[in-house]
């Protein structure tokens, strides 16, 4: 039975024998452990009173940071959101505002 790669063991201090043969990685989506949210300057903030759950903001996110659950969008994944602001423009109801200093 194939085992998923233990990403915690693979870093810039790992000895050669912990570097996977052929640099192959087993198991998907490990990039989640890398938090690109640190790149962000402006942060999207949602006003749930204005949000109509039209979902137009969800497909336009380049960083898969707006999850949809039971037909409703969830709050932003700020661990990964890079603050591009595309969602703010996609919202026709003014429910998303990009704010600095959050």
């Amino acid at each position: 039975m194939a085992q998923a790669s233990d990403l915690s063991k693979i870093n810039e201090k790992s000895p050669y024998y912990d570097i996977t043969p052929g640099n192959q990685i087993y198991g998907g989506g490990g990039a989640r452990e890398f938090h690109t949210g640190e790149w962000r300057v402006k942060t999207p903030v949602i006003d749930w009173n204005k949000c109509t759950q039209c979902l137009l903001c969800t497909p336009v996110c380049p960083d898969s940071c707006i999850a949809v659950k039971d037909g409703k969008r969830q709050d932003f994944d700020l661990d990964h959101c890079k603050g591009c602001g595309i969602c703010e423009k996609a919202c026709s109801f003014g429910a998303i505002t990009m704010k600095e200093g959050i």
Partner: peptide, 11 residues
């Protein structure tokens, strides 16, 4: 496609 990739903001 999981988040955490290093594409530029707004790609």
């Amino acid at each position: 496609l999981a988040p955490g990739h290093r594409m530029c903001a707004g790609c």
